[in-house]
Nucleic acid binder design. Sequence first.
DNA 1: CCCCCCATTGACAACGTTGTCTAGAGGCTA
DNA 2: TAGCCTCTAGACAACGTTGTCAATGGGGGG
Lengths: 346, 346
Amino acid sequence: MTDTARGTSRRYGTRPTMKDVAARAGVGLKTVSRVVNGEPGVTPDTERRVQESITALGFRRNDSARILRKGRTASIGLVLEDLADPFYGPLNRAVEEVARGHGALLINGSSAEDPSREQELVLALCARRVDGLVIIPAADDHRYLEPEISAGIATVFVDRPPGRIDADVVVSDNFGGARDAVAHLIAHGHRRIGFIGDQPRIHTARERLRGYRTAMAAAGLPVDESWVSLGSTAPDRVRAAATGILDAPEPVTALFAGNNRVTVTAVRVLRERPRPVALVGFDDFELADLVRPAITVVAQDPAGMGRTAAGLLFRRLEGIDDPPQRREIPTRLIARGSGEIPPSES
Amino acid sequence: MTDTARGTSRRYGTRPTMKDVAARAGVGLKTVSRVVNGEPGVTPDTERRVQESITALGFRRNDSARILRKGRTASIGLVLEDLADPFYGPLNRAVEEVARGHGALLINGSSAEDPSREQELVLALCARRVDGLVIIPAADDHRYLEPEISAGIATVFVDRPPGRIDADVVVSDNFGGARDAVAHLIAHGHRRIGFIGDQPRIHTARERLRGYRTAMAAAGLPVDESWVSLGSTAPDRVRAAATGILDAPEPVTALFAGNNRVTVTAVRVLRERPRPVALVGFDDFELADLVRPAITVVAQDPAGMGRTAAGLLFRRLEGIDDPPQRREIPTRLIARGSGEIPPSES
DNA sequence: CCCCCCATTGACAACGTTGTCTAGAGGCTA
DNA sequence: TAGCCTCTAGACAACGTTGTCAATGGGGGG
């Protein structure tokens, strides 16, 4: 026999079950279940005895067994690109709040922009039988989700649409926001405006570029292709791109930065140069108003996106089965100074 | 009969089980289990037949049942104050990475600094039988965890120590960091230094105050109690406190801000005033170097804290059972300008 | 006073997987 | 060729809960 610890206090790692509680209280197993779940049909006296046993033994219902039996896990999965990215914080929190309102827990993970990691994570969540998924996609082919969706796992995509399947999706008004940003610069007198954005395989980057071109065209302004630079948002790449655009013989007088990280690098670059250049960034960021000049941005509403996505998800979980929905969350231009700098010749 | 959908494609919401796979492949249930888990003792031919059935039916193992049977959930819980707080992003991510390395998923939630919500969340995670917990405490009494811990749920506290129980804990060197910050200001000639911190019921706030007092005492400088203000970090409160300290008849020449949020508000207040006042903040924040003057801070290492905490947790899960550990993560003073401003008389 | 009904309670199967154990088919040795 | 061993495969119980159903007992109406 190896149970040397037997008999000394409680066995480590062993938890009491309803059966144990029932035995101690001298009642049936099902009665304990009823008490634990607050079901009717138990006399106050019996209930008291059961409760006493529960606290005495430190019983806690095993939700794994409950889940197995009931088929619902009361948990949803959230797959995003990077838990550490400040943009996703409010989104994460908003999804959590909605989940909490529905009594569900949130399981989450980062795809790190790696499609295979996204898939691995999503399938692990499906194996857990989460009730639903909120996904910020890294992959561009989501057909691997088809069996899961038809098996009843509700799925909502956020920030970027799914690839090659149809599903609920919540996106920012990337096109409209970008168009507004560029129109704002044009309204302040700019005619030569540069655009530095993310890799074109990313949907949001393409939409923002489209907004840029549309605004320019609407004002009858030509776009010199050397003003446009799409690619990695790594500081080095952005710095090189910005320098190239600003040092051209006939340089731009304003920059539109395609996202957060680009904006920050652009601020650093502009600060090193004598000539004032206007700047509007896509995505707000904390402290954008503390920098001098304060940064004019097109603000997204990540919390709103999270709330909307979670709302759609629980709507599905409640059984509403209409065609896939698309929700576009408006953006808002916040003028703080950097976007209102007038054009200055070299 | 209500099964109108029967016969048309697959029934929505029903998933194949190992039994279904076995029936289709003409093998026993256990053989499917063996194939799914890569266990030995299956001929290549049989395995092929089973694999074929699995893909044809879109089978995915039900981890709820597996968990029930095996007793391990391969998931850990993370309870923090606010998923949206940028400070916790890197911590969250670091914990996730370590969990991922151990094949575990991460379930997380926000306590919103509400002790009862912390407890509710923690107990929900315990009912799920997470293997372990990483907790950034909001409560100051964690005895409610005793039955869970003795039932084998490993628990590590981060950022603040647990209340009234003994457990592994990972904290920043709040005392040392604060002392260094104030010593830095003293080294730059300041003798009257204000401190604005968080509510004294929070451990980190007390430790940082202790560091402040120690540095002042070490330099033989008196502390006028009107220079010290602890309380909510809401902008209004901090603004009032800062104004009071700075408008005193014999005002301070430097401020030490007890955390992130305080620092940001302090920057705004100082910017509105003519007299230059030195500032050092506890906690680094993105773009601290973009503000003018750039902000000198005592940087914590949230990713390091997360990694260390998760490391301790999985160490426990591997069965190491020594006394509760305490790990202190060093801080680092980053001089950027605001902390090197010399004293200026009114 | 009898019968019916309702409220309380518990026995039992089921959820889908994994651990244990045994059966059967070959191959090898003596 | 008998006997043994190994390797594959499946039958069965168990994990801890909940849904279903039946049994018991007490109270009220006829």
